[in-house]
Amino acid sequence: MTGRSMISIEPVAVPGAPLARRNPVAKVAAALVFSFTLLATLDPVAPAIAIAVELAVLPLFGIRYGVLARRAWPLLVSAVGILVTLVLFASDRSGRVLLDAGPVLVTTGVLLTALGLILRVLAVALPGVIVFATTDPTDLADALIQNAKAPARFAIGALAAFRLVPLLGQEWQMISMARRARGVDAGRNPAAKLRLFASTAFALLVGAIRRGTRLAVAMDARGFDAGTPRTVARRQPFGPADGLLIAGAVALAGAALTVSVLLGTFRPLLG
């Protein structure tokens, strides 16, 4: 019970890896640029190149391949989902017919589209998985304030709430156990299970808001929002290497698209 049910927002990477150390804002910007460029195409070639790039830079972020596999396995499940949905609902059923059974009409065109979509989902999601696996929430908030000019009150308020995540995870278990102690369980009845889930979730929300109210008071007591301009204790430098990381992401994503265009496989999302 304890192992599987832990909830945590700690980074999982080896600290000190060359790219993991980059400014968090630079990392997030690079990931967003890379992902969004790839969203623009529906072909299999550009995402395949992108995935190769992503896997190649993984060691520079200090992430072991096994760790990535564990974080990203739900993506594989959704890959199967995409295949099933496409087999049933594809708009383009050109190509050689491989299987024809009533509504299920599988053609080479369908399979090619599926391959493209699955690679695209993986390629678009992986940069985010990599960045957030290597980024400490405190550093992210600091960098958002110092380098991205995010409003400090909001970034720090959100950060303080993120600190409650593991506590709320434990609280969920306490509430569930308390219900059992009161003679409430669902057995195998799905409707009862849903009701129990809803009432547990409600109790969690109430407790969370109560904590949030107390936390806000404690923050005010220490001069948060007193109107004095804040100073910063931890500097988040944004150096040339950070700019290079973003530029590199732009260049690599552009290269993947260019190859796809040159090979004639490029299919824009809109158009």
Partner: peptide
């Protein structure tokens, strides 16, 4: 203007939903 309690409780609501989705 947002008070501190507005910021923190808004964040906490979002975070609690995140935990609820995880529990789901």
């Amino acid at each position: 203007r947002w008070r501190t309690i507005d910021i923190v409780v808004a964040s906490v609501i979002a975070v609690a939903f995140g935990v609820i989705f995880w529990a789901w």
